[in-house]
């Protein structure tokens, strides 16, 4: 239990540093992320360049720091979008009558059959490449998880005492849904969304690595890894540090999210 607590506070610490990096990257990064020095390409990590330099002679550490904002925004944006979409689908399934429920559950079944990455490729084939497309694609592949839980929660809450009381008081069904059912259903879903931010950052960086994210050399972890692809053999640092950044971020979000989940479950 004590080691769990240490993990939680480590996670919180990492997230705090990341938020600072996202808001004021210049405060942490010693160099400009775009300052390329053609005389210092693929330089080893040193006191001057903590994580070494990339194939264009840019400071990998500064690029990792400046890449935080894009990664966090992708993760949070995609999760928020998925949460919204999942809630709408879940409410529709439970309030729209039997036909709506049938359509939504079948749709979720179909989505199960098209795994994440494949569905993301289909979405990007439709929307075209770009940062926005990556956010939408990651949201689309995570919507069903939220929709299922919202649907299950609502069905469970509907049988609860306080909803019965509201019905007995003569409140309208739409009022009961908005005032009582949805707010109570959202708690567990919000926790899931917190954990989901980590997975969304991972998925987003995978799509960027495939070259489907934004073009034009802005610092982004997945794109940095793709750029270093041809130099793995000679410059391990250009491949190791951006990936480490992704892993640590995903890990921190997951650990903190799971801790919150356990606390909420413990309370119920």
């Amino acid at each position: 239990m004590r080691s769990l607590r240490i993990g939680f506070w480590l996670g919180v610490l990492v997230l705090a540093v990341l938020v600072v990096a996202a808001i004021v990257p210049g405060a942490l990064a010693p160099h400009s992320p775009d300052a390329a020095d053609p005389l210092l390409t693929l330089a080893r990590p040193s006191a001057r360049f903590l994580f070494g330099t990339d194939q264009n002679g840019r400071d990998v550490f500064s690029r990792v720091v400046f890449g935080v904002r894009r990664s966090l925004l992708t993760g949070v944006g995609a999760s928020a979008l998925a949460l919204l979409g999942g809630t709408v689908l879940g409410v529709l399934a439970t309030q729209g009558g039997r036909l709506a429920d049938e359509v939504v559950t079948r749709l979720l079944d179909v989505q199960m059959a098209i795994p994440g990455m494949t569905l993301a490729l289909l979405v990007i084939a439709v929307t075209g490449t770009g940062t926005g497309s990556v956010v939408v694609a990651v949201a689309v592949i995570t919507i069903p998880g939220y929709a299922r839980i919202v649907r299950g929660q609502i069905l469970q809450i509907r049988r609860s005492g306080y909803v019965e009381a509201a019905v007995a008081l003569g409140q309208r069904p739409s009022t009961i849904t908005i005032r009582h059912v949805v707010p109570n259903a959202l708690g567990p879903v919000l926790v899931l969304a917190t954990i989901g931010v980590g997975a969304a950052i991972g998925a987003g960086s995978s799509l960027s690595f495939l070259g489907l994210g934004g073009q034009g050399g802005a610092p982004e972890w997945g794109a940095m890894l793709a750029g270093s692809r041809d130099y793995f053999a000679v410059a391990w640092w250009a491949a190791v540090f951006p990936g480490l950044a992704i892993t640590i971020t995903v890990l921190a979000v997951t650990v903190v999210g799971r801790h919150l989940q356990k606390r909420i479950e413990g309370r119920q």
Partner: peptide, 21 residues
């Protein structure tokens, strides 16, 4: 937990760097 958090493509890159190169 770490295994689930590591991006698949990055782990692949690490394996490639260590074992092949």
């Amino acid at each position: 937990t770490i295994g689930v958090s590591i991006p698949t493509f990055w782990f692949g890159i690490l394996l490639l760097t260590v074992f092949s190169f």
